[in-house]
Simulated assay, not measured.
Amino acid sequence: MKRILGLLGGAALCAHSAAALACGATNEPFYVRSEQGPTGGDVPLNAPLVVELTESTDGPAEPHLSPRLTLVIQGSGEAVELGPAGSAPHLMWVPVESLSPSTTYEARFNSGYEGEPDHSWEFTTGRERQAPLSLEGKLEVTLETAMEPSIVCPPNRCVCNVNDCLAACRSGAPTPVTRARVKLPRALSGFGRRAATVWLTDGTPYDFAESTKGGPDSEPHEVSLGEYATFDDDGNAQDVRITVPEEAAPYRPCFALRVSDDRGDSVEDSLCLSEAFPLADEPAPATGQEEAQEPSTTSSACSFGIASSPSSQVALALLGLLTLVRRRR
């Protein structure tokens, strides 16, 4: 049995869009600008331009966000070519070429709402580039036994109204499951906040290159489950736990990691366990790594996947997704 399971990557707009697709068209939220950057002096030559938005109820009945940003060298008015790389509420533009050293720039932003005035600010570059996002270490995975309550949700109530779904779901007796504890490598350098997406798939690692094209990866996975993680200022993240579903036939669990920063740069890593799941013996703590890929730099995007598992795991994963959507919005 297969189901579509949306992993809504990187911004609250992804969750809003998924809900609109599932439940019919809804009005866009109305946004107001809350902060922008960079500002001040000694700005890295490869810095992105960021505008943070927050939702507001004080707006038109049918708002249509159409943001634009221009960047010019102060004095000469020479325009800088920018490439958009973010989505609401975290808007971002990346200069196509490095900024000039020791130069003052003027940025001008407009949300595109009717009658909205431009907002401008200035910043001055330094002489250095910021080190790119990188990973220190590799993915590590340990299988553990755990007890989880079985969760049963009524059909057709979990698509459009998260609160109704959660209220209608009920817990059954705890059942033994196998969890993968995924230890993430440290995320170093890069710009601003760093966040991770971890995918569990069968047979081969999740293909992020395909997901950036607007759909799931091209591999015919029977298992495709995702989780989010964030990093602290020192680049450390808490371990990610994913319940490993049992399928009709044993399969080799594979794990894929993508870490992204505020510039939209990403680094990736992956591994596949050496033994098939379920194991022949009880899953005592075990680790395995095989065919781990070298980190590579790509662009970030929302991604979607397909998963399958027994009915009790379907309900459990669905509840986890709804909780994820509520937390991200």
Rank of each mutant, 00 (worst) to 15 (best):
L45I: 08
R258H: 04
F123D: 09
F231H: 06
P216K: 09
F123T: 10
Y31D: 08
N46T: 04
E28F: 13
G305L: 03
F109L: 06
L135Q: 02
A25W: 11
A195P: 00
E222N: 07
T298R: 08
P84D: 07
E116M: 11
P295C: 07
H16P: 00
T57W: 07
G215S: 14
T298P: 00
W93Y: 12
R328T: 12
R179V: 12
A25L: 14
L139H: 03
G264L: 01
L8P: 00
P89N: 12
G77Y: 08
E246C: 11
Y105L: 06
S120K: 10
A237H: 09
S100E: 10
D265K: 01
G40R: 06
I242M: 12
H64S: 12
T103H: 13
C165Q: 13
A47V: 05
I151R: 13
S17T: 13
L5N: 09
E294N: 07
V50T: 03
E35G: 08
A276I: 00
V159Q: 14
D58C: 01
E55N: 04
H221Q: 03
L225A: 13
V182G: 09
R181Q: 13
V80D: 12
E291I: 01
S266W: 01
V32A: 14
G77L: 06
G24A: 10
S87R: 14
E114R: 14
A20Q: 15
A195Y: 02
V182R: 08
D42C: 03
E282V: 06
V244N: 06
R194Y: 04
E227Q: 15
G203K: 04
R3G: 09
S34P: 00
V51F: 02
D118P: 03
D42N: 15
S308Q: 12
H90R: 14
R108W: 04
E62H: 13
L13H: 10
E148M: 10
Y228F: 15
A301T: 05
G86H: 04
H221W: 05
E144H: 14
P220D: 14
P205V: 11
S260W: 01
A187T: 05
G192F: 01
G10K: 02
E148W: 04
P60I: 07
G235R: 08
T287M: 03
A286T: 13
G288Q: 03
L139T: 04
A131Q: 13
P60T: 12
V50P: 00
P278A: 06
S309M: 12
P283Y: 01
P220H: 11
V259T: 02
G115C: 12
P29M: 07
E128K: 13
A292R: 15
V267S: 01
S270K: 04
S260N: 00
A249N: 10
G115P: 04
S218P: 00
Y31A: 01
V43Y: 08
Q36N: 12
E219C: 05
P101N: 03
A209G: 09
C158W: 10
G190R: 02
E275L: 11
L135P: 02
T204M: 10
R263V: 01
A248Q: 11
R181M: 10
S211P: 05
A107R: 10
M92L: 15
V80H: 10
R129T: 06
P38W: 08
L225D: 08
D164P: 00
Q238G: 15
S312E: 14
L7E: 07
P154Y: 05
L225C: 00
M92A: 12
L99P: 10
A180M: 08
E290P: 00
F208Q: 05
